[in-house]
Amino acid sequence: MALNSAYTIIWLDVHIGSKANCRQMKKDFEVGLVETAAVPPLPHDPIDDLICAVREYSAPIQFADTTNDALNLIENSVTYNKKVILISSATLGKEIVPEINKQQLPIESYYVFCGNIENNRDWGSECIDNGLDIQMFDHQTTLLIRLCRDMSKILKKDGIAVLNAKKPEFALKYFEFAYALAEKAVEYDTPTDSSDKHHPSTEHRQELNSLMAKAKQDMK
């Protein structure tokens, strides 16, 4: 059962739009079944994998490689009462944010990929001072790990609301998808070097396991 997500994610980035990039994601979501069957196995790409997870478990992702295209996607999403999350490269983000503000388009949150955060700190801080929910990252995998965790928390919150509305079967799906996204974040946040002392957060496990058990109990 797929979720009828209240969100849509719009990704503004020339790199992602390139045919050579994120090929598995495009194979899975952008071509027909006959074409897909003809595509040979592709090398593993963590960015690909994370994008597919976000799109499968939480919200549709639409891609744009120009500011105008992204603005059109935002306007269309707002028309259909979707909450918009915008991911952007720093260069295009700096360009589109003033236009979004000028047109008074509602954006839930911004995720910005910067080759160099320090070079973009001033305009990013200005956005935050103006009340925008903006986060900057210097690596796309790190950005997507955070997005997985954030969307997991949104799904958990929505699932609790659905559970309180006495719809446990739907709530269970929210919790399962929230768990899957959070686990995907753990997978890619786990160091490959055994000497690295970083431990990814697994705090979601106890609460979501409890919520899933509650939903299953309410279904009986």
Rank of each mutant, 00 (worst) to 15 (best):
M1N: 02
L3Y: 01
L3M: 02
N4T: 04
S5R: 08
A6C: 06
Y7V: 00
Y7R: 11
I10W: 02
I10A: 07
L12E: 02
L12H: 04
V14F: 02
V14D: 05
G17Q: 09
G17T: 05
G17M: 12
S18I: 00
S18M: 13
N21K: 09
N21Y: 03
N21F: 06
C22A: 14
Q24V: 06
Q24C: 07
M25N: 10
K26C: 00
D28A: 13
F29W: 14
E30P: 00
E35M: 10
E35D: 15
E35F: 03
T36K: 14
A37M: 13
A37L: 10
V39K: 07
P40F: 02
P40L: 01
P41Y: 14
L42R: 00
H44T: 07
H44R: 14
I47Q: 11
D48N: 15
D48T: 08
D49A: 15
L50R: 13
V54S: 09
Y57D: 07
S58I: 09
P60N: 10
I61S: 06
F63R: 05
D65C: 10
N68L: 14
D69G: 12
A70V: 11
A70P: 00
A70L: 09
L71N: 05
N72C: 15
E75L: 11
N76Y: 12
S77I: 03
S77M: 03
V78T: 15
Y80M: 04
V84T: 08
L86P: 01
S88N: 03
S89Y: 07
T91P: 03
G93R: 05
K94D: 04
E95L: 11
I96F: 12
V97Q: 12
P98Y: 04
N101M: 15
I107W: 02
E108C: 02
Y110R: 00
Y111V: 02
N116M: 02
N116P: 00
I117S: 10
E118G: 01
E118R: 14
E118V: 04
N119A: 15
N119P: 01
D122C: 01
W123N: 04
W123Y: 04
G124W: 00
E126F: 02
E126G: 03
C127D: 01
C127A: 15
N130D: 08
D133I: 09
Q135V: 03
M136P: 08
F137Y: 14
D138Y: 01
D138A: 06
T142A: 14
L144C: 11
L147E: 01
M151K: 11
K156W: 06
N164I: 05
N164P: 00
A165H: 07
K166N: 14
K166D: 12
K166P: 00
K167Y: 11
P168H: 12
A171L: 07
L172E: 11
L172S: 09
L172G: 02
Y174L: 14
A178T: 10
Y179A: 08
A180Q: 09
L181I: 05
E183F: 06
E183K: 12
A185K: 06
E187T: 11
P191F: 07
T192H: 13
D193S: 12
S194R: 04
D196E: 08
K197M: 04
K197D: 12
H198S: 08
S201W: 05
T202H: 06
E203D: 14
R205M: 06
L208H: 00
N209S: 08
S210P: 00
L211F: 03
M212Y: 06
M212E: 11
K214L: 15
K214M: 12
Q217F: 01
M219G: 09
